[in-house]
């Protein structure tokens, strides 16, 4: 590969609430914000200042297994931003987390951590397919990507 496509893709514009997610990602950990009140503990995504169930402002970041299933996917075609147009059609997927099915992380199904967004043939995408998180660097930020559990 002449150059990594990930150099020119959009990197996340991180806000205060989301910052811990990306810090953990840089360590190769998929963590989701959870209420830290002992009798609540609800997971929430996207991260936010307080718990919608009990209104507690105490939170922690709970480690996920990194396993999930494809809930849906799209194959974008141009017109797109240039770095994405070069790869089109690529896939974008939503993964429902095995540990929290109501949380569906957006990502891309790839053949390996540093493979491009179009590295899996589109006919291999299937709703319900089991996937596992890996991490790739985009503009210096580690972002989740997903590989099929069974190749």
């Amino acid at each position: 590969m002449a150059r990594s496509d990930t150099d020119t893709l959009l990197s996340p514009v991180i806000d205060d609430d989301g910052a811990p997610f990306w810090e953990y990602a840089s360590r190769g950990e998929l963590r989701i914000q959870a209420c830290a009140r002992p009798d609540c503990g609800a997971l929430r995504f996207p991260p936010r200042p307080c718990c919608p169930h009990c209104q507690s402002f105490d939170s922690e970041w709970r480690r996920m297994s990194g396993r999930g299933r494809i809930w849906s996917y799209v194959l974008p075609h141009p017109p797109l931003l240039p770095a994405y147009a070069e790869l089109a059609p690529y896939n974008a997927i939503l993964v429902e987390l095995a540990d929290a099915p109501h949380i569906r992380l957006a990502g891309n199904l790839v053949s390996g951590p540093n493979a491009p967004l179009n590295s899996i043939p589109s006919e291999r995408l299937r709703i319900g397919a089991k996937v596992q998180v890996v991490f790739a660097y985009v503009g210096g930020v580690a972002v989740p990507r997903w590989v099929l559990e069974r190749l």
Binding site: L9, P12, G18, F45, Y84, Y90, A92, A106, L117
Partner: peptide, 12 residues
């Protein structure tokens, strides 16, 4: 808020 969770992955 939502963009950091979707746009980098090409949901543009």
């Amino acid at each position: 808020t939502p963009a950091q969770w979707t746009r980098p992955f090409g949901l543009l």
